[in-house]
């Protein structure tokens, strides 16, 4: 397993840069990963990220896009604007979660 220094902290990451231990995550790390992905995080981004983290905490799995958009946190169009070029992949990476494994 590789380690990477993000925002001054050594964290464990997989070959695609996803954190492998969520307990190492903090908001500064989230900000830094977002910057690497070319995203400046706003309050709206954080709402999505926090929803994903809560879902993983309570259900043990990332939600689908449909579940996320039905929650009222964000609509599909806005989600794609907030996280261009692969919203769930980028959002879960920034949130320090695993890579999404759902087809929908």
């Amino acid at each position: 397993m590789a380690t990477k220094n993000i925002a001054g902290v050594d964290v464990n990451v997989n070959e695609e840069g996803y954190l492998t231990d969520h307990s190492q995550w903090n908001r500064e790390i989230g900000e830094a990963i977002a910057k690497e992905e070319g995203i400046e995080l706003t309050g709206q981004h954080w709402k999505v990220l926090e929803f994903l983290q809560n879902e993983v905490k309570t259900n043990g799995a990332l939600p689908t896009i449909r579940r996320l958009t039905k929650s009222g946190v964000v609509d599909t169009k806005t989600l794609y604007q907030l996280f261009p070029d692969g919203p769930m992949k980028k959002a879960s990476k920034i949130a320090g979660l695993e890579k999404p494994a759902s087809c929908v």
Binding site: T64, I65, R66, K77, S102, V104
Partner: peptide, 17 residues
């Protein structure tokens, strides 16, 4: 499995760009 009905799926794909 959160695979939406046809109409909702079409709306989702369109909203996704």
């Amino acid at each position: 499995l959160d695979i939406p009905p046809v109409r909702e799926f079409i709306e989702m794909i369109s909203a996704a760009g």
